[in-house]
Write a protein that binds this DNA or RNA. Structure first.
Length: 265
DNA sequence: AACAATGTTCAGTC
DNA sequence: GGACTGAACATTGT
């Protein structure tokens, strides 16, 4: 599920744990916690306190404070292909979970913080492609896809010769856009995903940016990219919800791609 | 059983 | 060296 909108909602869940003091850390999943070893993250964080929850693109994390009140290591979390954050408060109140508010099966628990008031913060990830690490290097990320000025968007996107969708998916160009959001924004803007960036006009790029902004805002508000208008029509036999033409399918930028065969010609 | 899946990264090729 | 492509990664669902 996780593209920028899902991660932003997960960040809000994570923020529900800010202020808590960490009494225990389960970091035994050495794949999800790589390159750390079991116990490394526990040693770094136990006794510390969460002080903030932030996000850039699809990467999020917490700032921490040591028991002495000094700045502690940052706890970086990436949800990968299907991770979720669930926070349980001392009273048993649960924040997060899947769209049906199911917490997820216990064996999908990949990482857990336990707090002094009895609450928990968990990463659940059935596909196990999520990641937890201390002080992650985020220097390779481009600006967050939310709130990119038009001139910056045009300049960053137009560089190179690849397909426009491949540019949108490149996290070093803009951070936060994933496969579904890219298809949605390109469909809204009526631009073919395989169009080469050097062939797009300034008007095309401005229209794409506006539609991307709108798709992002809408997806954050509605709880995920799956709420996009064209998403449910990305399937064999699907039709464009605007004009009724058949949806076309192929691979662009290494990912499964759907577009309107008429409007995005 | 074979294949695709809302993501990232690494090994190749140009 | 930079830009770009495709496979690999771990696991689940169809």
């Amino acid at each position: 599920m996780p593209e920028l909108p899902e991660v932003e909602n997960a960040r809000i869940v994570l923020a529900g744990a800010v202020g808590q003091t960490i009494t225990g850390v389960d970091d035994r999943d050495d794949w999800v916690c790589r390159p750390h070893h079991p116990g490394d993250i526990a040693a770094a964080l136990t006794g510390g306190r969460l002080t903030a929850a932030h996000r850039i693109g699809k990467s999020m994390g917490c700032d921490t404070e040591t028991p002495d009140g000094d700045a502690g290591p940052a706890l970086g979390i990436h949800l990968g292909m299907g991770g979720r954050i669930v926070v349980t408060r001392s009273g048993g109140e649960q924040l997060g979970g899947d769209p049906d508010r199911q917490p997820g099966r216990a064996e999908w628990n990949r990482f857990t913080l336990t707090f002094d008031d009895g609450g928990h913060c968990r990463l659940l990830d059935k596909r196990r492609l999520g990641r937890v690490r201390l002080d992650p290097d985020l220097s390779g990320l481009g600006p967050d896809a939310q709130d990119v000025p038009p001139a910056v968007f045009r300049e960053r996107l137009r560089r190179g010769r690849s397909a426009v969708k491949a540019r949108l998916l490149d996290q070093s160009v803009l951070a936060g856009i994933g496969n579904l959001l890219a298809d949605e924004a390109l469909w809204q803007a009526r631009i073919r995903p395989s169009a080469r960036v050097q062939d797009l006009s300034r008007t095309d790029l401005d229209r794409l940016r506006r539609n991307l902004d709108r798709a992002l805002e809408r997806a954050v508000a509605r709880g995920g990219v799956h709420t996009g208008e064209v998403i449910e029509h990305r399937r064999p036999g699907g039709h464009c919800p605007r004009c009724g033409a058949e949806m076309a399918h192929s691979t662009v930028g290494g990912r499964s791609t759907w577009w309107c065969s008429r409007e995005q010609a």
